[in-house]
Nucleic acid binder design. Structure first.
Lengths: 165, 165
DNA sequence: TATTGTTATACTCTATAACTATA
DNA sequence: TATAGTTATAGAGTATAACAATA
């Protein structure tokens, strides 16, 4: 399961809207699912970054906080496989959230190698607010779809990456 | 318009299938369009990279070759805005394709600053083969969707990133 | 012997600043 | 003054190897 995160910069200009040059024919690419899926993901994530800026959260940060919120005591190794982030790359991310006082590590009950991750009170507050904003974004600003279209879209996307499921 | 390209490595293990740790509850993330769009794009691109390996093409390379094929004489600046690749990052990419003998630069008819990009004979051969493979991938292996579902999916994705279009 | 978490490190991708030559 | 193409460079993101502690 991949991280919900391509380019994670604060909302910036990124390729300025140079509409000067005449548009090119991109018909073939526009007929590909991967191309459209990526563009849609980038569009959604762009709005996501704007709205999460006040909370100082990138997409990975939100994903990690949300998984911890819904899975108290989850280990770094579990986050790694759940978000397709390699363990070494999770170290700094977790440390930063810890230094911000949003999460804390506690000894794992059965395995002294592992550490359970938990939200602090501040972390729960922040994650809760962020999740509300994201939930409303999903229907409001980002997606110009009816609720039925939204469900259809998610179902079809799942079918693409989970042929069996 | 973004490049059709997240992680562009040759097909590698990427986060080994460590199914050891029990799965975590990712329900909330799984209900988000951006999350699912990204996963679908990654799944499609993963197969894409496998099939394009024989041609030595990454997704960006294919995108550039295809745009040049369908827009002979297109400029680097046009590719930049069409694929959301910043001009400096396009220089090396174009140079490599040129060194491989797949494309060539010719002086622009009206603007002596610009250069028109064209496929060579070898480039046309390669791009043609690659495009065929990609086209068949779209219906066969990757997408376990009916043709109607495929069209619905693309339509809904467009609606997400092109609210007006 | 295998796994958790970690350090160190390298490679790719993406971004900005600044230059040149033309417009 | 603005644009096309380029160089140099910095910063994210992602990858591998190897280690200590524990299983």
């Amino acid at each position: 399961m991949p991280p919900f995160t391509p380019t994670q910069r604060p909302p910036s200009a990124a390729v300025p809207p140079t509409e000067t040059a005449p548009a090119v024919d991109a018909t073939f690419l526009e007929g590909l699912i991967g191309y459209n899926a990526r563009r849609a993901a980038l569009a959604v994530i762009s709005v996501f970054l704007e709205r999460m800026a006040p909370y100082g959260l990138r997409v990975v940060d939100f994903s990690v906080l949300t998984l911890i919120a819904h899975n108290p005591g989850v280990t770094s190794r579990q986050l790694s496989s759940a978000l397709a982030i390699l363990p070494p790359n999770l170290v700094g991310l977790v440390r930063q959230l810890e230094e911000r006082g949003l999460i804390e590590k506690r000894p794992h009950p059965h395995d002294r190698r592992a550490q359970g991750l938990y939200l602090t009170a501040a972390g729960e507050r922040l994650q809760g607010e962020a999740q509300s904003v994201v939930a409303s974004l999903e229907t409001e600003a980002i997606t110009h779809l009816t609720e039925e279209e939204r469900r259809t879209l998610i179902g079809l996307l799942r079918k693409v990456y989970q042929p069996a499921g």
